[in-house]
């Protein structure tokens, strides 16, 4: 199927448009995911720590 795909003389145009868009979308997803994970981990740590502190008091 891919070998049948003929983009003709606009091959570079179409491919670069898709490439740029995909790179930007993936970058956004990665940034969102990475920050989400970091904040979530830090929050869990803080909650665990505070829970312990409260227990000792």
């Amino acid at each position: 199927m891919w070998s049948d795909l003929q983009l003709g003389k606009y091959e570079i145009t179409v491919l670069s448009a898709y490439a740029v868009a995909l790179v930007l979308i993936v970058a956004l997803i990665v940034a969102t995911w990475a920050r989400g994970r970091r904040v979530r981990r830090q929050l869990e740590e803080a909650e665990a720590r505070l829970g312990r502190n409260r227990g000792e008091a």
Partner: peptide
């Protein structure tokens, strides 16, 4: 527009 029409799916 030839194959460049495929860009509208992003644009």
């Amino acid at each position: 527009q030839g194959t460049t029409v495929k860009i509208i799916f992003l644009h």
